[in-house]
């Protein structure tokens, strides 16, 4: 009876995994081999310089987004979790605001900030007589990704900070440790699981984000953009499928490596 009940509990997850994950992915695999290049479409991701460069720049943007997001969010989350000041609740509520924005809106906001007529351009022209414009480059993309990843990472890390036993920090202080030492020896190791989880989500989202890049960019080559152009404009379904699978695998591999590395660090203490 209990076994049958457990099987029933597994059913929804099983159906979901089969219908939305395994079947489409399995279908994608032969599609990639059906094109002009045959199965070597998979190799093209590595051998074709344009695809390879795209893959590398996508990885760099995603990694930079993750690193900057974690650095900013860890500091901000600790401040927000431990301090009470007027307007704090409003600020925390506002953090959830950008969560609902689609990438297109984020891209639009980046253009308003750092486009040809954006705030940065106007300010820099007034100050230095030169318009600084970075919205349509990888820099603009990075700003856009930071904009939507920082709030969600702050919220995750804040929850972890609030669960941290305040006595841990007090014990370290009583033993003579200063604030930076406590961060390194006590707080960051305790937050590591939350940072890895939040960082993984941030990285994966940045690898696959499309709307922001699409809005900003004629000249931005990130993998989701290339997949889109190959698929809709070039009609190159096979390459699009191979690139999709490569994107998934590389993201998965990067996350597995990060998880292993942080696990080893935590164990070594």
């Amino acid at each position: 009876m209990t076994r049958r009940f457990e099987f029933l509990l597994l059913l929804p997850a099983g159906v979901f995994v089969l219908a939305f994950l395994l079947v489409p992915m399995a279908a994608l695999v032969p599609v990639a081999g059906s094109g002009r290049l045959g199965w070597s479409a998979y190799l093209a991701v590595v051998t074709e310089p344009r695809y390879r460069a795209t893959m590398i720049s996508t990885l760099v943007v995603a990694a930079a987004t993750t690193a900057l997001t974690l650095a900013i969010a860890t500091v901000a989350a600790q401040f927000l979790a431990s301090r009470r000041f007027p307007g704090r609740d409003l600020l925390v509520a506002m953090l959830t605001f950008p969560l609902a924005f689609p990438g297109v809106v984020v891209g639009f906001m980046v253009i308003l900030l750092s486009g040809r007529l954006g705030l940065v351009a106007q300010a820099s022209e007034a100050l230095f007589g030169e318009r600084i414009v970075f919205a349509y480059s990888l820099g603009g993309l990075l700003v856009g990704y930071l904009y939507f990843s920082i709030p969600r990472v702050i919220l995750t890390v804040m929850a972890a900070v609030e669960k941290l036993d305040p006595a841990l920090v007090e014990a370290a202080r009583s033993l003579g440790a200063g604030p930076f030492r406590i961060q390194r020896d006590v707080v960051l190791p305790a937050l590591a699981p939350a940072l890895v989880a939040a960082g993984a989500l941030c990285f994966a989202t940045a690898m696959g984000a499309f709307g922001t890049a699409f809005t900003l960019a004629t000249r931005i080559d990130v993998l989701p953009m290339v997949i889109y152009t190959e698929f809709t404009l070039g009609g190159n379904v096979a390459i699009a499928a191979a690139l999709s699978i490569a994107l998934g695998l590389v993201t998965w591999l990067a996350l597995a490596l990060a998880r292993n590395a942080t696990g080893a660090v935590a164990a070594a203490g």
Binding site: D165, A167, E170, A171, R173, S174, G176, G178, P189
Partner: peptide
Amino acid sequence: PIERRRVGMVFQSYALFPNM
């Protein structure tokens, strides 16, 4: 400040550093 007061503290939760 506590960092320079040289007091030993034992807490209810012990507050041992779990990564050590």
